[in-house]
Amino acid sequence: MNELLLMCLIAGRRAAIPAVRVQSVIEIDEITPIPATPDFICGLTALRSQALTVLDCSLALGLQSAGRGKGERAAVVEVDGHLYALLVEAAYDVGEARSEPIAVPGGFGPEWQRASTGMVETDGGPALLIDIAALVAGPVAIAA
C-alpha cells in the first residue's frame, strides 16, 4: 500500500491527507471573513481568481484552534465541485503510507474518530488519515 499522503499537523497531532485529493498547498495571505458562518469557516481567499473557502481544520474537527498567524499553509482540495483551503498548523512533506489505514482499539478520541478513516504508518511515525468530506462538513454536521 503505497498511497501518497500529505503529512501535516492538525491540533498538534500528526495527520495525513491523501495527496491525490490535494491540488496544491498554498500560503494563505488574506482572508475575507464571512459573517454569520460557523466558526470553522474562516472566510474566503482567492487563488488565481477562484474563491476558496478557508477552513480551520482544528475547529472543523471540533477541537480547539491553535490560533492563526499570517502566512499559514493550507491544502487545497475539491469537494462536490467546491474548492476548500484546509488550514493546517504545519504542512510537511508528501510521504508514502506504510500500511493500510487501521482502527485502533479504543478509537482516537471522538473528534478524530469522526473525521478520520484510520491510522496509517508513515516514515515519520503513525498519523491519522483524514476523511476530507467529513472534515469539510464541519463538526455540527458530523454530530447530526
Binding site: 464571512i34 454569520a36 458562518t37 469557516i41 477562484q50 473557502t53 467546491h82 462538513a137 454536521a141
Partner: peptide
C-alpha cells in the same frame, strides 16, 4: 457570481 460551499449556503 460563483456558487459557494454548502456550509456557507446554510447561513
Amino acid at each position: 457570481v460563483k456558487p459557494i460551499a454548502p456550509a456557507i449556503m446554510d447561513t
